[in-house]
Every structure is written in C-alpha cells, then in structure tokens.
Design a protein around this nucleic acid. Structure first.
Length: 797
DNA sequence: ATAGGGTTAG
C-alpha cells in the first residue's frame, strides 16, 4: 500500500494562494475550523470580513480534491489526517465523500476508525444522521448499507448502544434494510455488557426493521436468554432453529447455570442423532468440563476428559486448562501439577493460561520466589507468555521486594512487542508502594498516562492505599481529591484502604477524621476502622467501636483480627465477649478462635472458664481439635486434677481424635510425677495408669520425640535408674533425634544429683566437642554444669 | 459470531 504525505508546501499553497485557507496556531483553531468549512453555520463574525465567499470556495475546492482521490483511498485518508493536523475540520460533505470512497473500496477497518473518530469529535458541526442523509442522496444502495453497518459497529465499540440502535431505526425510516451482520454484532456486544434484556427486545423488533434472523442471530439470542437464566426460553428458541451453533451455545448456557449434568445428557442424545461430532463435540465436551469445574466437581470433570480420550480426542487445551485452573484456585498445587504432568505426557501443549494460573497459585500460597523461578523456567521454554503471565511475575517480584527487577521485566515485555495495560501498571505501582517507594509509584502513574493508559479505580485504590500506609496522609488526600475531580468515583474499597492505611501508619486520628467527614459511609468502613485500630495495637478501642456498632461486622475477617488482637493483648474477657456476640449474630466463630481462647485461658490457669467455653463449643456442634484437647489435658495435669485430664482423654478418643506424641507426653509426665510430700513414687493405681499409657502409646506406633525422651529420662533419673536413663539417651540419638538443651540438662543434672561425676564429666566433654552446634544458651549450660560439677567435687573432698 | 488466566480491599 502506498501512503502519500502532503508536504507543508502543499498546505502553504492551499492557504496562501487562491484557496486562501487560513492557517492558525493549533491551540486556538477549533471553532475557526468548523466555521471555515461549514456553510451551514452562520458565524460570520469569525470570518475575515473581506472574504465573504471564503467558506464556500474552500469547501468546493476541498470537495473537488477529495473527489479526485476516488481511485486512491489512502490518499484521501492521509489528506484528512493532514487537514486535521493543520487544525482544519472537514464538513459533512467532505466526510460523506471520504466515507463513500472507503466503503466502495471495502476498507472496512479504516472506515471504522474514521467513524469512531468522527463520533468522538464533538465539534464536528453536524450530526451523524446528517452524514447518512448526505450519503443517501448520492451513493448506491450497497454503500449506504455498508456505511450504516460500520456506524453501528463504531457506536458499539464505544459502548454507545442507544445510538447504535437508533441507526438501525433511522435506516427503517429511509426505507432501507440494515445488514443482519451488524445487528448480530450489536447483540453480541450487548450481551458482553450484560444488557441481555435489550437483546431480547431487539430480537422481537427485527421483523419491523425488515430484517431476517440468520442462524447466528438465533445462537446469540439463545446465549442472551441463557445469561438471563431463562433456560426454558432458550430451549424454545433453540428448537425454532436447531443448528449446531445454537446447540453449543445452549450447552454452554446449561454449564454456566449450574446444570452441567443436563448438558451431559443433551450431548449424549446429540451424539446418537449424529448432530455433534468432531470438533463440535470436542468443544461441547470442554464446555462440560468447565461447567463441572465451576460446580467444584473436579472428579466429574476429569472423568469427562477420560471420556474424551476414549472417543479419540487428544488432551484438549481448554478442558485441561479449566481443570488446572480449578485446582489452582483451590490452592491445590499438587493436584494441579500432577494433572498437568499427566496431560503433558499425553501430548498437551502448555499455553499461557495454564502457566499464569500455576504461577498465580504459587503466589497465593505465599511462594512468590518459586513463582518467579517458575516464570523464568517457562520463559526459556519457547512458549508464548502474554502480559497476564508477566503480570503474575511482576506481582511476585513486587511481593518479594524486588520491584526494580519487575520494572526491567516490563521493558523486556515491551521489547517483545507487548503493550502493557492498566493492570500491569497497577501491579508495578503496588510493588513500589509495598516498598514504600511512593515517588516511584507516582512517577509510574505519569508514565502510564503518557503512554495513553489512564489509571482506573483499582490503580487509584492501590496508590492511595500505598500513600496512606506509608504515612503520606496529605498526598493520599490529594490523590483522593484528584480522582474525584477526574470523574472516578471512589468506592468503599477506596475509603477502606485509606482508613486502614492511616491506622497502619499510626495516624489514627486522621483516619477517624476522614471517616467522620465521609459523605457516603457504609458498614464496611466501620469494619475497616475496627481493623485499623487492631492494626495499631488499639484492640480495646477496636472492641469499643465494635460494641458501639451494635450490629454484625460486614467483613467477617475482621472478627478474627479483633479477636486475636484482644487475646494477644490479654483482654480475654473481651475476646470471650466477641465470641459470644458472634454466636448471637449467627456468625460462626470456628474452631481456631475457640481453641485460641481456650489456650489463652489455660495459660493463665483459668481452667474453669476454659472448660465452660469448651462445653459451649461442644454444645454448638464444634468438635474441639487435638490441640485444644491436649491443652486442656495439660492444664488439668498441671493443676493436679488428674481425673479430669483422664476424662478428657477418654472423651477425645471416643470422638475419634487420635492422641499424638504430645498428648501422651503430657499424660506420662504428670502421672509419673513423684509425690511432692514424700518424694516417693505415687500409689499403685497411678503406676498402673502409667504403664497403660505407655502400652497404648507404643501400640499406636507413634514415634517418640526429644521432649518425650526427655520426660522419660527425667523419670528414670528421679527413681535412681541412671543406667536406664543413659540407655534412653543413647537410644534417642540412635533413632536419629538431635538432643536439645533441655535433654542434655536433664541427663546432666540427673548425673550430678546422684553423684555420677564420671558420667557427668564425659557428657560435658562430649558436649564441648560439639561446640560448632552450640548456641549461646547451650554454652552457658555447659559452663553452669561444669561449675556445678566442681562444687560437687569440692564437697566430696 | 462458541470457552480460559492477571491488579487493590494483607
């Protein structure tokens, strides 16, 4: 294709010779431009007084020139471009000519972009209908239909649906029938925008417009009905025009509406009737796979893949992607990778959707380093990685505190010809904010705007959160104002991140003030304040705010935050109150919360309150877990209420909760304690219990750990069986366990107490040889033991 | 013109 540019000389001639077009500085040119070329506008005061016929003359010559480009549409186009560069705006007839030329030449995409630009230019000085009228008079039927179709498309691409529909009805007014193609296009986009009702309404009016629905139209309307959830209506329409296309749309609709099982039945029937086969069948199958994945029925999805295999289909990318994406969303990385591996073995080709999902799964599981490593691995594998994959890598690097590398990666991405989008920039801005580099974040905002991408609501939320969190309160307020001024309406998230961010930066009063002044407050904002208080160590204040609300918190995660903050700061009564309020509000607190509080109560030996909560849990159907049982048992043991400990132990076994090494250690330790009064072994009954525990313990096949060995060694030392103690210690080392400080101390003090000086010395020597492994406290221990030894030896002398 | 993935609100 040839693109001829007009030299500045051309325009110079145009403006200063007989045509007398006026060149103006671009800044002040707009109004002038219209009036100079549009004879319909009577704004004579803007025209030079001594050239009354200028506009007419100009228009005519322009027209003449455009007409002469009839055989060269590119020439016509670049003429238009040059005109605009010189601040000249052509009138309706000029546009009509241009549009006619492009349309007769079939340059649809060029036509589209000219029309889009025209629609967006609010100072064009004529209406779009004027254009149609101007074309109607001269162009043949075909061209008008084509132009109207292009107009519909242009409006649709600008999401101006009412105007697009208006074009269709204007055609009816002109007794022309618009193309069904453009109508289908309009309908498809309407669906994308969720305007399914408009699709159905338009479909009913097709006949009025003189249009005849084709098979695509039916499929599209079936889709619209499915989206609306009107499966019966969709089915009725489908049966009016049962094409393979429409069937596939309907099948997809069933899958999207949680009726995948029905889709499976339908497919079976269609196979029998030989309607579905080959690639169509493959498509239908993968839709079903996706449906099952959405319904969280991964096994069913996998079995469909197997059925596809039986029918001779190799591993389908879409189907396999859907399954892997499902596993990744569930953060089930092993299954995701396992399935991926299996399918790769069967010939599946990796694609960027699978890659990005797997990478994101790593990120979500807090394995950002692995995510980035994997990204690099995939980069070297000759698979196309798109900007979504890159984005996950940006995110991972940002969370690792390595934004600079992410920015370099952005350059690499652009070098490969990809254009970054809002999300890419937003991710990087977030990365900068996470590192507190707000200046860089702000610079990036400028850079993206310079590249023609305007920050969206999420971008602003990220930025404003970063500013607030890092203590830049004024800048945060400034950006907040700027986004409002720019026509972006802040949402609840915006307010929440500001409130939480300011609290995080310990600017609690500023946050309170911000919330107070907020015009549109929502319950969410108060939940954020509660969270913010917790964040800055003000759990009592958070609690007060929560009580003052007198209603459930809108964000359930805040309960956790509030509750655990209260526990951490020791306000157990308030924590308990939060639990009770949760029950009152019918928000299930869950096992971990109750367990946490029981643990905290036990720690301060308030076993009575702990038991009450324990009972409440059970009453409400929450079975305490192994941890909670063990903590309770331990506490009862410590308080010497062995019977209660024993009861709990039986109770947990009855519930099918298997005691572990910790539980047994706790029990053994307390049952084998010596009588504090006499210093001798306690009664026969207890001895029996000890051996009983020991028998069950070993029978359960639970491996002993260092703590458990230590307890046993301690016991042997106390009842004077030093050989047995030594043997236990050796056995512990043989079984591959590394004795810790407590284990050494226990044995050592046993030796010392009972006067086995030689053994003690040997042990200390052994210990000192291990000096590499000795940490500070360990060293102290050796020193203390040596001192103790010395004292004992001195005493003996 | 029939189907997937990514950013904030830890």
């Amino acid at each position: 294709m040839r693109l001829r540019l007009f030299s500045p000389t051309f325009f110079f001639l145009l403006s200063h010779s007989h045509l007398r077009l006026i060149r103006r500085p671009a800044a002040s040119s707009r109004l002038y431009a219209v009036s100079a070329f549009n004879p319909n506008l009577s704004d004579s005061e803007q025209q030079p007084v001594n050239h009354p016929n200028l506009s007419k003359l100009n228009q005519a010559s322009l027209q003449r020139f455009l007409n002469s480009t009839r055989d060269d549409p590119n020439l016509a186009l670049s003429f238009l471009g040059q005109l605009k560069q010189h601040g000249v705006s052509p009138n309706v007839n000029a546009y009509a000519t241009l549009v006619r030329i492009l349309s007769t030449w079939g340059l649809d995409r060029k036509l589209d972009s000219v029309l889009v630009e025209l629609i967006q230019n609010e100072e064009r000085g004529f209406t779009v209908m004027d254009l149609i009228e101007a074309i109607k008079d001269e162009a043949e039927y075909e061209v008008l239909i084509r132009v109207s179709g292009a107009l519909v498309k242009a409006y649709v691409s600008l999401a101006m649906f009412d105007e697009a529909i208006d074009v269709l009805f204007q055609m009816k007014r002109l007794n022309r029938v618009p193309s069904i193609k453009s109508c289908n296009f309009l309908m498809s986009r309407l669906i994308e925008f969720g305007k399914t009702g408009m699709v159905v309404a338009l479909f009913r009016q097709l006949k009025q417009l003189g249009l005849c629905a084709n098979e695509y139209t039916y499929a599209i309307v079936v889709k619209a009905l499915c989206r609306k959830g009107d499966m019966e209506g969709a089915l009725r329409l489908l049966l009016e025009s049962p094409t393979v296309f429409a069937y596939k749309t309907f099948i997809d609709g069933l899958c999207a509406n949680g009726q995948t099982e029905k889709a499976v039945v339908l497919i079976k029937g269609l196979i029998d009737e030989k309607v579905l086969a080959g690639d169509d069948l493959r498509t239908a199958y993968s839709m079903v796979v996706r449906g099952f994945c959405d319904e969280m029925k991964t096994e069913a999805a996998e079995s469909v893949v197997l059925e596809m295999e039986r029918n001779g289909f190799g591993p389908d990318v879409r189907a396999c992607s859907a399954i892997i994406v499902r596993y990744c969303k569930d953060m089930n990385l092993p299954e995701a990778l396992g399935f991926l591996d299996l399918m790769l073995g069967k010939g599946l080709k990796l694609n960027c959707v699978i890659v990005s999902s797997v990478l994101q799964c790593y990120c979500k599981m807090d394995m950002c380093l692995e995510a980035f490593e994997k990204f690099k691995e995939f980069s070297g594998m000759n698979i196309f990685l798109d900007r979504v994959c890159y984005n996950v890598a940006f995110d991972a690097l940002g969370k690792l505190g390595r934004v600079e590398e992410a920015v370099k990666l952005l350059q690499e991405m652009m070098d490969k010809g990809m254009v970054p989008d809002v999300i890419n920039y937003t991710t990087l801005i977030d990365g900068y904010c996470l590192q507190g580099k707000v200046t860089d974040a702000l610079n990036l905002i400028d850079e993206m705007s310079g590249n023609g991408i305007s920050p969206d609501l999420v971008t602003y939320n990220v930025l404003v959160a970063g500013l607030a969190r890092n203590g830049y309160e004024e800048e945060a307020q400034e950006v907040y104002k700027r986004m409002k001024a720019g026509g972006l309406k802040p949402n609840a998230v915006t307010h929440n991140v500001i409130i939480e961010g300011l609290c995080f930066a310990r600017k609690v009063e500023v946050a309170e003030d911000f919330l107070r002044r907020l015009e549109q407050k929502c319950p969410d904002n108060y939940a954020s304040l509660v969270k913010g208080y917790c964040e800055s160590g003000l759990s009592k204040k958070a609690y007060k705010q929560f009580v003052r609300l007198e209603r459930p918190l809108s964000k359930s995660s805040v309960y956790n935050k509030l509750f655990f903050s209260l526990c951490m700061e020791g306000y157990l009564d308030k924590a308990l109150d939060v639990l009770k309020k949760m029950w009152a509000y019918r928000v299930e607190p869950g096992r971990s919360m109750c367990g946490k509080l029981i643990g905290a109560l036990c720690e301060i030996n308030n076993v009575r309150e702990a038991q009450l909560l324990f009972d409440t849990m059970v009453e409400r159907g929450l079975i305490p877990d192994l941890f909670t049982y063990t903590i309770m048992i331990h506490t009862y043991c410590r308080l010497n209420e062995l019977q209660k400990a024993d009861d709990l132990f039986e109770d947990m076994k009855q519930r099918g909760i298997k005691p572990d090494v910790v539980t047994y250690t706790v029990l053994l330790n307390s049952y084998q304690k010596l009588d504090p009064e006499t210093g001798s072994v306690q009664g026969e009954e207890q001895k029996k219990r000890v051996s009983e525990f020991w028998r069950k313990f070993t029978a359960a096949g639970i491996g002993l750990d260092v703590v458990c060995y230590t307890v046993l060694i301690d016991r042997q030392c106390k009842i004077n069986k030093i050989e047995k103690a030594t043997k236990l210690f050796d056995r512990m080392i043989e079984s591959g366990l590394e004795p810790d400080m407590v284990a050494y101390t226990t044995l050592l003090s046993g030796y010392c107490r009972k006067g086995y000086i030689d053994k003690a010395v040997a042990l200390v020597t052994e210990l000192s040889k291990k000096d590499i492994l000795l940490t500070e406290p360990f060293g102290d221990l050796v020193k203390r033991a040596a001192l103790k030894l010395k004292r004992i030896q001195q005493n003996q002398e």
